[in-house]
Design a protein around this nucleic acid. Structure first.
Lengths: 208, 208, 208, 208
DNA sequence: AATGAATGAGGATTCATTCAT
DNA sequence: TATGAATGAATCCTCATTCAT
């Protein structure tokens, strides 16, 4: 599923992500910075990518994939919905406080830049290939509910996903807020968000 | 509160926003495009702003202010919490389908670019001056609840705001989805989001 | 007819031609060299031209026009066909020993490069505007013959022009040959070429 | 005289010529294109040539040699001067309409580029080795005249060659002209050029 | 001998900013 | 005050050449 990344390709990804983590502005990263950080020649990058935008887009998607795979495994390991959600929230917290790349990727989905055009294009291709990690995670989180087969109508599911996504997003914003720097408060919020998500999910499936 | 915008200054704002509405990538807008659209000379822009970043940042904040004032007035006009929330959601929908500028502004708050640095700097200044339009709207929406004076703890209020914000944000994303192009479906979702917000608000204030 | 060249535009033309005269390889001239020689900023060149190729193409066409105008005036001044032809040959000799730009322009007409594409495009435009300096010269040289109205068929005229052109071209190549460095020999060849051209012309018009 | 071309070396030559025939701009051909077309590795080319320029220069000289040998044989086969000249013109026509390489080679002789420097260098070497194919052809065409031993002065011969060359060149330009696309007209011009050349040759030798 | 991955020098082009008018 | 011509720093990308395999 993953080992098909060539070394230099992966070096580029890691360089882009490292630069981002160091606070670089994605829209002003230079190819020289990327290749310098990756420890390869500038020309080499162009053996693997058609341009700077592709490098950045793929780097963030790469990160997204790795993250989703981690989430997927974690979610599968946990038993209850609450534990699954908790695992996701904790992983998100980790991501956000450390790199924030996933957050930025989600943001780019609604931007209109060369990089985000690449992201959309690549996602479309992936979707056609059948690989959609983010949705896999959600499906894995809802196995129990989905197995009972009282399926709610499709647009309700879309709404649910958006809603859950927004709660996680909200959680992400909160832990970025100064008021929630302490683990104590974070925990309380995490529980609130968790309950809120679980309730929404169960209600939806009970109703239908 | 507002009329202190000079004509050329405002022309710049409108030009930036118009370019954005036309699908321009904010990070690649050029000063030439802005001033050309504003119908003024390139040098003139530098009489009012210290650089491109400031123009863009202020343009989006200007738009945010105008939008918030509109929201504020609408929210004050409505009677019940549900109607107030509904007004906000409808205004958001309008914004998003037409210009999306407010959405982009919110995004920029969590970016790390020259423009967003300006935004943070300007917001900080405004906060110090005591003008925080977005919070005014929320306060106006919650007049009844807040008047009852059973104030919940401060970090809960932060949580509430984030939660409400994320729901509105979620609603914004949803109506960008093709599946929700029809007014019929939109209405259903709007009601769902509305209920969800109202319930969260009332619960919080009842509990406390 | 001519004064419509802007100063910086003309500076570029002269810089390109000067570089060529200094022995630069047209296909490897850099924009930095051109603008450096022209004494203007690199960016300024792009205010007047869309790219390097356009600069070079227009520079050579500019030179061609200036040269043709000179030829035209000289040819009009002279009385007999032989004197007219002699004037052209002397002017060519001057051009070739000094700058060789006209020669290079003719060569580029049968190349297939970005510059020559520009030249063809520009020539086509000029032809549509009715300005064809080179043909004006030939027409001026043949006034007497053409006035007698015993017009030969059109493709014969084309042939004549090509033939005359090739003789002049041939003369141009000859005087590039070391053997013809001395004015003595040059004169002899010039007379030969002149006779050859005059004979061809008169024969064609007598025959028809 | 010739069979000493190694397979890979010849593959390079043919690749360069093929690219040129396909309309490539010689000054922008890349080594990758050449070796790709030749079906060999990029590094391999550098086992046989010191650089790109040498590849191109030698490719065109190779083509020139092949063409001259063909001309030489044809000219030797024909009996009269007119037939010899006609053979040359027909061969030229073939070359020009098909590949135009010979034309380009002649052009490069008066250019000032890295490739043409190589050509000059190589031609000088060949001349020292005594191999001058183009002049062999002319000598073969003029066997009868030269045998009569009424040799004109040397610079007259130079002039004659240039003149003949210019006529052939003129013919080449003509058949590139749209007006001369039809074989009918081409034939007429070919005859004209042929007569013109023969007359010039015989006159020169008679005079002397 | 043959290869092609890796390189980085080099060059075209863009565009924010200045400043003389 | 308003301008926009002029600038050149900054950056992407290409491609000839090398060299380890």
């Amino acid at each position: 599923m993953n080992c098909e990344y060539q070394p230099k390709e992966q070096a580029i990804y890691q360089a882009v992500l490292a630069l981002f983590e160091d606070g670089a502005d994605i829209n002003n990263i230079t190819v020289a910075e990327i290749t310098g950080r990756a420890g390869i020649g500038k020309g080499t990058a162009y053996e693997y990518f058609s341009g700077k935008e592709e490098m950045i887009a793929k780097a963030f998607l790469y990160n997204g994939e790795v993250f989703c795979r981690q989430l997927y495994e974690g979610v599968c390991r946990e038993k209850t919905l609450a534990d699954k959600v908790n695992y996701v929230l904790l992983a998100m917290e980790d991501q956000i406080t450390k790199t924030n790349c996933v957050f930025r990727l989600m943001q780019m989905l609604s931007e209109n830049s060369a990089v985000s055009n690449w992201i959309h294009k690549l996602l479309k291709e992936k979707r056609e290939t059948g690989i959609v990690p983010a949705e896999d995670v959600i499906r894995a989180a809802l196995t129990d509910e989905l197995n009972e087969r009282k399926m709610p109508p499709e647009e309700m599911l879309t709404y649910l996903m958006m809603s859950v996504y927004s709660k996680i997003f909200c959680y992400g914003m909160l832990i970025n807020d100064d008021k929630y720097r302490q683990e104590e408060r974070r925990k309380r919020v995490r529980e609130l968000v968790n309950q809120s998500i679980c309730r929404e999910v169960t209600e939806l499936f009970e109703l239908s």
